[in-house]
Simulated assay, not measured.
Amino acid sequence: MRDNLTTPPTVSGDKVELTTYALNSPGGNAIFNLLQEKLPDEVISEVLDTLQLVAAEGSRYVRAGAAYHVAMLLNTQVPPKDIVALFVGLIGGDFELMEPGMWSLQYLVWRDYDAILILCQQAIGEEKAHKPITNILTVMWANNKPGAYEVLIELWAINPDMRAASLKMLTNGYDDWPDKQVFFEAFEMFLVPAPTEKLRRAYDSIFIHFPPADFERIAPLLPRYLINCAADFDRDHFLVDYLAKSVKNHPVECIDALNTLFSQIPVSRGYWPASRALEVLIEAYISLPHHLADDADSKAALDLFDKLLARPDCREELDKTLEQVQSAR
């Protein structure tokens, strides 16, 4: 490693990632693999000296290889804050290195949050650092760490697509957050300004795994979500699938959501989950109490049937729909 601190990689190209460069440079590959090993105590001092040398004199490719796995030193007796300081030294002012350093960042941020927060603040102008900063600080925001939200606000203003990355992180970790309200705050907040396609996809993906047990918490946010996003729906369909999971316990809210959804999608434009929405509406109608002749919820369901059956993308389901509605009556 010491003999290859600046030996160039054996690959090149505009689309080659820094990690690939690191693995194809003699020094970067060596340090990348060394740090994955279970290091005996007697060599730790030499390893630290070598890493300090890499931080001071190594090429960015060698430093990328070191930054990737430097958090493995947390398994040794080296003080955690010293490892964080070493990571910060390896990054130096080359904030693109935070991208290959992402694996280590997710562990080091818990050992010296203040140092990593300062690093993120310094790196905010580097586009390739935006994803790791977003991922790390979104987790910190969800864990009530001071300062994380303020940096994220600045980053979202610079790169609005990072709103999608934050929403995905909050969705994936939903079960782990000490206060799930942070997820619902983000859900509502990211609707303004109007979501990009990438953010709209992130919203749709929420409903793949979102727990039906928490339907009552997300239901009040659905009208605004649909008003802001549904006009652009094409492949977006996971909300309809989610309503299908929730409809027996929440028929009224599902009818309202479907009504808002199809109020936003023009009749002239096909929406392929429309037939699935009909099935949800049928289930909602069946689940309603029908002992009152003037029941407003039943009337709302029937009005929505009329609206859906006027759509070309629902018309082929007409016979089956009418048969099921009549049998429900």
Rank of each mutant, 00 (worst) to 15 (best):
S246Y: 01
D241C: 02
F238Q: 11
E283G: 03
T321C: 01
S263T: 14
C229D: 06
A231Y: 06
I286S: 04
I218L: 04
L288G: 03
D319N: 12
P273W: 09
L278G: 13
E216P: 05
P211A: 13
V280S: 11
Y285F: 12
P289S: 11
R217Y: 12
L309T: 05
V280E: 11
P223T: 11
H237C: 02
I282M: 00
A213G: 02
A274P: 04
E317W: 07
L292E: 14
H290I: 06
D256W: 07
P211V: 11
V240E: 08
D232L: 05
P220G: 06
D306C: 14
S287F: 13
F238N: 11
K307F: 00
I265G: 00
D295F: 04
T321Y: 09
L278I: 13
P212Q: 01
E316M: 09
P312I: 01
D236K: 15
L318D: 06
L226V: 14
A277L: 07
Y242S: 06
D319C: 00
N249H: 04
R311K: 01
L302C: 05
C229F: 05
K320Y: 11
F305Y: 15
E253A: 15
L288A: 08
L302V: 12
F233C: 02
A301R: 00
E279R: 12
L288H: 01
L288K: 07
H291L: 05
N228G: 01
D313A: 07
S275N: 03
A277I: 07
Y225G: 05
Y225R: 04
D297F: 00
A274T: 14
C254N: 03
P220I: 08
A231D: 09
I282D: 04
P220R: 08
